[in-house]
Design a protein around this nucleic acid. Structure first.
Lengths: 119, 119
DNA sequence: CCGAATCCTTTAGGATACTG
DNA sequence: CAGTATCCTAAAGGATTCGG
């Protein structure tokens, strides 16, 4: 996208993670236990079937997530993290850390604002 | 956004970084040298004035970037990374690393595909 | 149970022209 | 030089319905 050879790598990385639900899907799968479609739905209460399918397909496409179909009636499909997907673990870890402190920082700031406003 | 208390921190972090040009703006400012509006434009050849303004305002809003106006004619404005913005450095570092290897991985895969197809 | 298909809304981003 | 203001397009995401 960008001529500049260095920063464009950020974009490549972010493309794999960005998507409204992708970090959360990866987070849950990184716990190690394979999850079925409806298990993921329950873990992500607000996601629609369509978005879950779309995001899982994209993650599968990039080989971050593996899809295993058990030929049964009723059908059973399990999603799990791939070995390559595990390499995202440090990224999500550091994102999570920073995000938590960022949220806390914002919260503290709001508190201060309220106090100075009411006095 | 999400009830689940843990993964939503990712979103908070990503919101600060995501945006077509934000990682690159941050990357350039993290070099340490304050940059003027048009200097940033030159570093990001394809960005429009509008998008540069918008993204800078958002980064400023989150106190990741500092804006200093020198009251002169012609006007001079300098953008620099804040101390808080520097805390993003490890994140961008790890994203950059992973992104680079991800791109390389894809490239190798394409190469293999071409070879097996032509034979 | 695990989706695909269709249609619709919202948001991000871009093109262009103008200004103190 | 460093922006605003307007208008427009494309892409992401959501709602709903249908099917093996």
């Amino acid at each position: 996208m960008q001529r500049n050879p260095v920063p464009c790598q950020f974009v490549a990385a972010l493309d794999s993670i960005v998507g409204k639900w992708k970090p959360m899907i990866l987070y849950h799968l990184l716990q190690g236990k394979p999850l079925r479609f409806n298990e993921l739905r329950r873990l992500l209460p607000d996601i629609t079937q369509r978005m879950l399918t779309l995001h899982l397909r994209e993650l599968e496409e990039e080989e971050l997530v593996k899809r295993v179909i058990y030929p049964q009636i009723p059908p059973k499909v399990e999603y799990s993290i791939t070995e390559y997907g595990m390499s995202l673990s440090p990224i999500l870890e550091v994102l999570h850390q920073w995000g938590a402190s960022h949220v806390e920082r914002k919260r503290l700031k709001e508190e201060n604002n309220e106090q100075t406003e009411t006095h």
